[in-house]
Amino acid sequence: MELRVANVRKEFERFPALNDVSLDIRSGELIALLGPSGSGKTTLLRLIAGLERPSAGSIFFGDEDASHKSVQDRNIGFVFQHYALFRHMTVLDNITFGLRIRKSSRRPEKAEIRRRALELLDLVQLSGLEKRYPTQLSGGQRQRVALARAMAVEPNVLLLDEPFGALDAQVRKELRRWLRDIHDRTGHTTVFVTHDQEEALELADRVVVMSKGNIEQVGTADEIYDKPVSPFVFGFIGQSSHLKVRIENGEVWFHDRVIGIKASDLPDGPATLYFRPHDIELTDGCSGCIAGLVTVSRRIAGTWHTEVDVGAGHEKIEVSLNADQSAALKGGRIAFRPRHYRIFPTN
């Protein structure tokens, strides 16, 4: 089912959690909401679920405005970070709960409920554990039961709130691949929240980067990494370095010299240059480059993380060099130019 979030705002006791957020989610898509804590990503997920009521705006399930529907009537599947399994019920009873509580007119036959639950158990690779209680399962197993329980009601949309957040690194990686696999097989429209960019970039069809209650960028993993649209996204996704520069007549100036980068589409004035620390080329001499003194260079495996002092009044910037580049440095001086970069005017 398609989902549309239209101009949604949410405030908690006057504290704004989301400011005028809009988002379209295509049917069958796997979407990640990515951001630091306090970015509003969990709030957005809970608004879609109906666990919170928006202060303004609407949420559409298909063509239907679901904003005022209760969570019970939205027919969603929700997976919680800490599983939220019913501890007095067996695995099977947990999975069938959503079906068993339905009114008799909408409730499948007993045998059908059981068949469906066992099928789901098989899908989440827990066959044979249907009689266990949650306390008898590992964290990873519990989360898989939670997913099976959410899918048992055949939800319009599957919502997962930091589903792997409470698990250790090894299990996390396994479950990540496994979730992608299940999504490809079942085709549920799925939205999951994470603060782990690796998880988001690896797993999702599209990533929604959020910060301070706003959506910064929506795009595929490549788009987010290669064409970040805001300083926040550039800084949040992957490694980044930045430098305060000045634009005059389409030329980028640093101090009293040009860097050798054109910025013809930007207005004159102060700006910030963003680039990936490893994505640079060293230059001989300096007719159009960034030059400075190496203050510290730490080797981590095959990469030299090098701190460069570019002059008084500027923060030190970091570049990553390979062995050849590092060996080519002479007398602690470095001159380089970023290969790929983004420039954002300072306002």
Binding site: G50, L51, R53, S67, H68, K69, Q72, D73, S105
Partner: peptide, 16 residues
């Protein structure tokens, strides 16, 4: 009929 029943949705309320 069942669609009509579905129409009578419960309004939003704090689920806890």
């Amino acid at each position: 009929l069942s669609a009509a029943k579905e129409e009578r949705v419960r309004p939003f309320r704090d689920p806890t």
